[in-house]
Design a protein around this nucleic acid. Structure first.
Length: 446
RNA sequence: CGGAGCGUAGCGCAGUCUGGUAGCGCACCUGCUUCGGGAGCAGGGGGUCGGAGGUUCGAAUCCUCUCGCUCCGACCA
């Protein structure tokens, strides 16, 4: 993409309404535009990152054997009367009447609807296990939306629902989700710690929240500092192997890590003092096992091997997709702007032409752009007729992890500069070497 | 929903107390000079002062109502 033809409305000054760094940078980098309290348009750059995050979520869900579908944003109220949540949910649920005066709602979550789909089409234990998920816009009419996309009223969420024949199988589904979530967050460059949490209005017996540590987080968290060292890495976990999956979960949940809702001071104090940490975190996901809470009230039953009917065992699992944009920026930025992890960056590299209009520089940039595209990468070439400083400032702000700087001075020696946004370290090399190095860097992030 | 603020050009703000016909910086347009970390000079365009009513010879400014947004708190992916 050439910047002169793109739509990237960057702001030099900080918008008055943005209080936290991720919100400020998303506005300044031209990623979002607020349309109402807690409701945003996603401008091209923000939309690109949102899509990359969605893609990673899809890939990891598919890897775990979960099946994508798509449910509507609007739901009939009657479905929620069956589960009893229509009255319980409160003002946070946006209620709407259509022209026939039918009561509708903009879905804050989809347990009822997925249970309705399940009961209509599944009758036998032979069709289990089954996990269905979608990535869809939700609406929760928060009393006080804030922090940009971190606490919007409209937000994009991946929500998945597992259906299993018995508790043991359902717990495996729970564990499978935990591992798939660990992989998902690591691919996004995040350290998200699973913490024992409170079940809240969804209800249930077992639940973990995934927290990204950040000083601006809304939750207070207590943990053993050793948990932050744990990494899933490139381990090839067999998602069908209950013991293997459970072992990973055990590894990640044995050390103390809890939110303030479930914090136990006695257990916490048993940790060696130097490893005892109190910090703040951003919740980027949550998994629940809730058994037959919805299947019993809504009549979602399957026939077992023995021929008896039992309500299906369920759980639900969510990832705050739009919130992740904010969480990633909170966890990865400096005073110049965003620093995208390679896994989610909107463009793989920026090309800065220091002297637009110089024949050699123009040709070298065009050549680099073509070579990167040919290699399957997605570069952003700043071909604007701007001074070097303005181009650097824009690149730093929008946070592309790698920048190739091209100028007449270097070209005389046959070299360009490849600069890491994260470390600031520049290396001089030939254009061909820069392309080769970028290909290598991104091999692990495709 | 309780408490506190703010709405003036695309963005950031001054002007409101003390009423007199709207201003600054950035951005934008034109020209010239610059050009390896947000250039300089000159010229130029753009605003129903959130909206409605009222007071007044006259309202961005005073009064009433209303809408929107932000912050603190309680609630939450």
């Amino acid at each position: 993409m050439r910047l002169s033809r793109y739509f990237l409305p960057v702001l030099k000054e900080n918008p008055a309404e943005a209080q936290i760094v991720s919100h400020r940078y998303m506005l300044r980098a031209g990623m979002i535009k607020q349309q109402a309290a807690g409701i945003y348009s996603w401008l091209p750059l923000g939309f690109k990152v949102l899509r990359r995050i969605e893609q990673i979520v899809h890939e990891e869900q598919t890897r775990a054997g979960h099946i994508p579908l798509l449910m509507p944003t609007l739901q009939p109220a009657d479905l929620w009367r069956e589960s009893g949540r229509y009255d319980d949910y409160g003002q946070e649920m946006l209620r709407i009447k259509d022209r026939q005066d039918r009561e509708m709602l903009y879905g804050p979550t989809n347990e009822e609807m997925i249970t309705d789909i399940f009961r209509a089409h599944v009758n036998s234990y032979k069709d289990l296990p089954l996990t269905l998920y979608h990535i869809q816009w939700k609406f929760r009419d928060e009393m006080r939306p804030r922090f940009g996309v971190m606490r919007g009223r409209e937000f994009l969420m991946k929500d998945g629902y597992n259906f299993d024949v018995d508790r043991e199988a359902a717990l495996h589904s729970y564990n499978r989700h935990m591992v798939s979530y660990l992989r998902t967050y690591e691919r996004m460059g995040l350290t998200a710690i699973p913490m024992r949490a409170d079940s809240g209005p969804i209800g249930g017996d077992d639940t973990h929240e995934f927290l990204v540590l950040a000083s601006t987080g809304e939750s207070e968290v207590f943990f053993d500092s050793a948990v932050t060292e744990l990494r899933l890495g490139n381990r090839d976990v067999d998602y069908d192997n209950r013991e293997a999956v459970a072992a990973v979960c055990k590894e990640f949940t044995t050390l103390y890590a809890r939110t303030d809702e479930t914090h136990d001071a006695a257990l916490f104090d048993a940790i060696p003092e130097e490893r005892r940490k109190v910090a703040r975190g951003i919740e980027v996901g949550q998994i629940f096992y809730f058994g037959t809470k919805y299947s019993a009230s809504m009549g979602a039953e399957v026939v077992t091997k023995e021929g008896t009917k039992v309500p299906v065992e369920m759980g639900s699992h969510g990832i705050g997709v739009s919130r992740l944009l904010g969480a990633i920026i909170e966890a990865s930025h400096d005073d110049k702007g965003i620093i995208w992890p390679e896994g989610v960056t909107p463009f793989h590299a920026g090309i800065v032409n220091l002297k637009q209009g110089d024949a050699a520089a123009d040709a070298a940039c065009a050549g680099l752009e073509a070579a990167l595209i040919k290699a399957g990468l997605d570069p952003l070439y700043d071909d604007r007729d701007e001074r070097a400083g303005a181009k650097f400032a824009t690149m730093d702000l929008i946070g592309l992890p790698w920048r190739i700087t091209v100028g007449p001075r270097g070209l005389e020696k046959g070299i360009v500069e490849l600069t890491s946004r994260r470390t600031g370290v520049s290396e001089e090399m030939t254009p061909e070497a820069a392309v080769a190095k970028l290909i290598t860097i991104y091999e692990g992030h495709k």
